[in-house]
Design a protein around this nucleic acid. Structure first.
Lengths: 324, 324
DNA sequence: TACAGTTACGGACCGCGTAAGCATA
DNA sequence: TATGCTTACGCGGTCCGTAACTGTA
């Protein structure tokens, strides 16, 4: 059994059992992969794949078990590689973060500014996507961590570290009748067309559910994927905007009035998701501290260790989670 | 990085950093090991070992971190090998158990008899030793499991599965004055010389501690490592024997009188210890069931998984632990 | 005919073992 | 002088890529 045989096995599994595609992804030849898999099957004494003619159709039960172990081995080889980078130069490396628009646009800039001052030699990579895409990227070890909200428990490979709580606010142009209210109610809102996030309509804490539970009608004028678009259309008078409170920052958007929505909308928690069992570079711990000061190295290590064997995403619950 | 380089690293660490000894243990040449370790260090970019002249004196901190990861990888390769054996023929294989005299002599025979009927093709290996030696063997992956009593929390690499509770009994020749008592007290015992286990004198639940707490003198005539020796000297009239209740079985030792000691001596728990993260063969689960019926596959898997990342030995506590 | 996997083959590389060299106690 | 690591070197196996072949949609 060779490491690269396990690597080939994983690559084939990750490429819909297409050996050619796997070989391309591995940067090697297709016959090589084919042969090494055969050799591995021969050494183990059983088939890893079911075959129809020459094509692979699926993993055998035994193959799934082997793949599971192989992945752990490959994870650890990557961790050793990271160790090597860490001990060579702990101030140099790369940090890949997958995150949502809201984080990337409003929350992360301040953190990243400080991080870059601290670690000028660390190359940063930001990937924007939906919560699901983000968690997926982290679970596949293609980014160092994911920063997102919601979707707990959907990703068994991840350990989720809660960072802060937040809520939605209401935004209107200064001239809008709602701008004069201190504490608008759902009923007030239901009298105006709404402009909000697409994903506010999925899940149990959806806006739709909220209005329905209150027996109120809801008129949605526009759904967008990010707060910038929402703000634009609120300015055009298309309706009342509902955005994450992080999107409204001191000194910006002076033409809009922000009304606190914490009494109307449920709280959300933004977390950092790390693939279970992953080794973190020193600067990654420091990044977490900058993003969420309660995430000390001790706390993070403990959460990562505890998440070692569970079937669902692990959520570490601090004593008191700060509000944004 | 190659698997065998990691294997060499582990072997050198396991042989007091003596490359020659490691090479011998690996069945390969010393220069080969030396060279591969150098290559690994070169690839990683830092030293794994501190050297004085040409001799290795200790692992570097980085080396320790790498070794830790390497061991996990090697564990998983062994697990894959076990998978291979399991899928080739789930009724054939080997089962190595390290255990104490009491288990091997009195408890295991019945279990093993039934196990051999069920799995005639599984080769059995029994290793006898003290609790500490036993736990050590399991922690080093040199046996499949350890069966012993006490010594909890001493072996961070092990998951301990409690099997049954037991206590010590008192044995005397039929003619002995104590044989007429229903419920002898510590005071009764203190009037006679005692014959018991060596290891009953270590630890917090020691006999010595018991007598001392009661303010009673204790006269120890003989200490032995096993119940057979104790019985022999009790028969010679050397004193009153104190042995594990498992050592007194129905229909045997008819010349001796057994007095229940559960009201005098504290309870002990016998466990099966398994190295954390280890894959178990089907027949190993079955062996556990035979030994302790409450250890179902589900329960064992759960305990093994939960023990994935803890720093001390994990003890799985069932709702109700049977008495022997 | 395009596509995917297997078989065949030559070349490069690599790890092993032997033998010799060198440092330390 | 014994022990233990390193260097040097030749052999054999292995892995890779190319090319040709085979079976399937």
């Amino acid at each position: 059994m060779k490491l690269h045989q396990l690597r080939y096995l994983a690559a084939v599994a990750d490429n819909e059992l297409n050996i050619t595609a796997a070989a391309r992804a591995l940067g090697t030849s297709q016959p090589g992969v084919s042969k090494q898999l055969r050799l591995l099957e021969q050494e183990l004494g059983f088939d890893l794949f079911d075959r129809e003619g020459r094509n692979l159709t699926r993993l055998t039960p035994a193959g799934r078990r082997v793949l599971e172990r192989a992945r752990r081995i490959l994870d650890e080889t990557r961790n050793i590689k990271r160790l090597s980078e860490e001990f060579r130069d702990e101030r140099r490396g790369s940090l890949s973060i997958a995150t949502t628009h809201t984080q990337a646009r409003y929350v992360l800039p301040a953190v990243i500014k400080q991080f870059r001052r601290e670690y000028p030699e660390v190359k940063l990579h930001l990937h924007q996507g939906t919560s699901e895409q983000i968690a997926q990227l982290a679970a596949e070890d293609r980014v160092d961590f994911a920063i997102a909200t919601g979707s707990d428990e959907q990703f068994p490979g991840l350990v989720l570290l809660p960072c802060y709580r937040w809520h939605r606010d209401i935004i209107v142009p200064a001239a809008h009748p709602l701008s004069r209210l201190e504490r608008p109610t759902l009923k007030d809102l239901s009298r105006h067309p709404l402009v909000t996030y697409v994903f506010s309509f999925t899940g149990p804490s959806s806006l739709a559910g909220l209005f329905e539970a209150a027996g109120l009608p809801m008129d949605v004028a526009l759904t967008a994927r990010d707060a910038d678009v929402i703000k634009t259309y609120v300015r055009l008078g298309l309706g009342v905007g509902i955005v994450a409170c992080m999107a409204m920052q001191e000194g910006e958007d002076q033409d809009l009035v922000t009304l606190d929505g914490s009494h109307l909308f449920p709280e959300h928690v933004t977390w950092i998701g790390v693939r279970r069992g992953r080794m973190l570079r020193n600067y990654m711990y420091d990044f977490m501290r900058l993003f969420a000061p309660h995430l000390t190295r001790r706390i993070v290590d403990q959460a990562l260790r505890a998440g070692g064997g569970a079937a669902t995403a692990q959520v570490f619950e601090p004593v008191r989670l700060p509000r944004y």
